[in-house]
Design a protein around this nucleic acid. Structure first.
Lengths: 343, 343
DNA sequence: TTGAAAGCGTTACCAT
DNA sequence: ATGGTAACGCTTTCAA
């Protein structure tokens, strides 16, 4: 069923049918009614490719997921696109995801631009000295970043959380409980977000006149075994921490299992504060959650990002127009923290 | 830059340029050379929408991700599409993901079909008494299922693992170690895969003449807290198990944390065998992995599924042509199992 | 309020 | 080996 056949059935021109279906005001109410009913009855919907070609809009938004062989797949990404996808569906956009070998990302953007595959792109996981935004600008593809690029905050649209402040606050919270040695299990510090988090942690310590010990700081992929391993090492050291601050729930689970197997009771002998992205299969909810955490839903970030980008695409005025949104993270008290044990 | 402009620059017809770029044999080597060079120089690539309209092929494959408000987002899905996406990229296909509220899935398929958005679909997470395959057949969209539908195994193309056999084997392995009370932490038994796994567990027990105790069986979303909770309950019961069999790494982590906090040493006082989908951020690798497991990479399943579907789309002969692929799961010995403690 | 026809940028058929 | 042109299915401009 296509437009031609449908209009023949209705004894109307393709023009009128198209207008009726697309809500143009000049169509009589009666005609529109007829058209809509017949369309539904025959299960007609405009061919997406033809419409794209005619309008010059793809009604699609792209996400590029770079994947290097030994790098883990970030669960954050999944929650983010699930959130974004909900918004896309609502506004009639399609979501296109390109999985590409890490070294090939630039070529993909070029191809997406040349073939006009999408109206806009959401860029994930900015790193230190990130260059993708320059390429995208050159290619003229509207885009929005999930996360900021340090030093280029003012050059792109973005949605981000206040990582530095959140981790500063979490650290201060532990300091206030009397902890002086706080192990820090961070994500890969090639990533911009991880750099900001470390700064927050370090700032809080310095402001409190607490020494910053590099031996207490760890940076790696955020998996449970790596968290366990580093936490164990720290607990076995001559000067062990009384608390852990971790960048993800998986790392926190690792730290907890290390503590438990070391004979420590979490929330009493040792405290844990974690960042909680609200990953659905790693829940940390309830009114008194398992882990004390800095919480910010990455699914919501995805929704926000999608909304802002779509709005920008619709307004499509100034190509240099930027839009940014900073989300605050809540510090939520759970059962994994308590005062530092007396020396 | 479009075809018209490019051919003008080359003093050739659009026809010839198109043929040269698409590898048609009748173009002279010299001409083709010239065309290709100029195209690269000017950064030309055919507009995807125009090509789609002209060829009638979208070169896109769809995945539908139903999402109910309180249902967790399955990490399995992420690994699967990452695997599939790699294959799509290789064959020039785009991956379109539709996130839809659970009650709306049917409407989405109808729209995808009517608007001709994709050439094929991969269907995820089959349930008991699943009906989607019927709809898709009626709509005439080629599709492949990740998982089988019990009772309709012969009606669809699918890629699946041998869940029943794998769980039967795992259970037998524990029985052979002398365990007689084995707690079973399964996924949601609305899902087809979970039903098969339970059958495997039950079969093994019955074949060994071991009583099947419903109190030892649990079915829920596969999250760590739920695993912990049920495992704790079992361990505190009057007749606790000496082993756990779990359907996911997250459940296994939950069971382990329950056991540890209950003062038991995993691999000695209590054994754990888990299914391992090889989720990158929940690694269980190494030559002597943490958990003894039945392992089958869901990323590989994604690659397989994509390959088979693409092959089918290219061959596109008989619309009833089916293709199936059954993956076996390896039983891999880790550090979480040992002989049953003497009564 | 409705319709005819020109485009959108390709591919593919039919000539030459 | 190359070119002219119809066709793909829609939207949109211009006329009526």
């Amino acid at each position: 069923m296509n437009l031609k056949q449908l209009s023949k059935r209705l004894n109307l021109s393709q023009t009128t049918v198209s207008r009726a279906l697309n809500g143009y005001p000049e169509v009589s109410a009666k005609t529109r009614q007829r058209v809509i009913e017949m369309a539904r009855e025959l299960g007609y919907a405009p061919n997406q490719q033809a419409r794209r070609l005619a309008t010059g809009k793809t009604m699609a938004i792209g996400h590029v997921l770079p994947r290097s062989p030994n790098e883990m797949l970030n669960p954050i990404f999944m929650e983010f696109i699930a959130g974004a996808g909900l918004v896309y569906a609502k506004y009639g956009y399609d979501m296109m995801i390109s999985v590409v070998p890490n070294d090939n990302e630039e070529a993909i953007y070029q191809e997406i631009a040349a073939r006009k595959k999408v109206d806009g792109i959401i860029v994930h996981a900015p790193r230190k000295d990130e260059q993708r935004h320059k390429l995208l600008k050159k290619l003229g593809i509207p885009f929005l970043m999930h996360g900021r690029i340090t030093g280029a905050e003012d050059e792109t649209s973005w949605v981000d959380i206040n990582n530095r402040q959140a981790f500063e606050r979490a650290t201060r919270f532990l300091l206030d409980l009397g902890h002086r040695r706080i192990g820090f299990l961070n994500g890969n510090e090639e990533m911009d977000f991880a750099i900001r988090r470390r700064e927050g942690y370090v700032n809080a310590l310095q402001n409190a006149g607490c020494p910053v010990d590099p031996d207490l700081m760890h940076s790696s992929e955020m998996t449970e075994p790596l968290g366990t391993q580093f936490a164990i090492n720290l607990l076995r050291s001559s000067n062990p921490p009384t608390a852990f601050l971790t960048s993800s729930i998986t790392l926190a689970i690792g730290a907890e299992s290390a503590a438990t197997s070391h004979g420590l009771e979490v929330g009493k002998d040792i405290s844990i504060v974690t960042h909680d992205d609200v990953i659905s299969f790693l829940p940390n909810s309830g009114e008194y959650p398992h882990f004390t955490c800095i919480r910010s839903s990455v699914g919501e970030a995805g929704q926000r990002a999608a909304q802002l980008l779509i709005k920008d695409l619709i307004d499509q005025g100034d190509p240099d127009h930027r839009v940014t949104h900073l989300m605050e993270a809540d510090l939520i008290l759970g059962r994994s923290t308590g005062p530092a044990p007396q020396g």
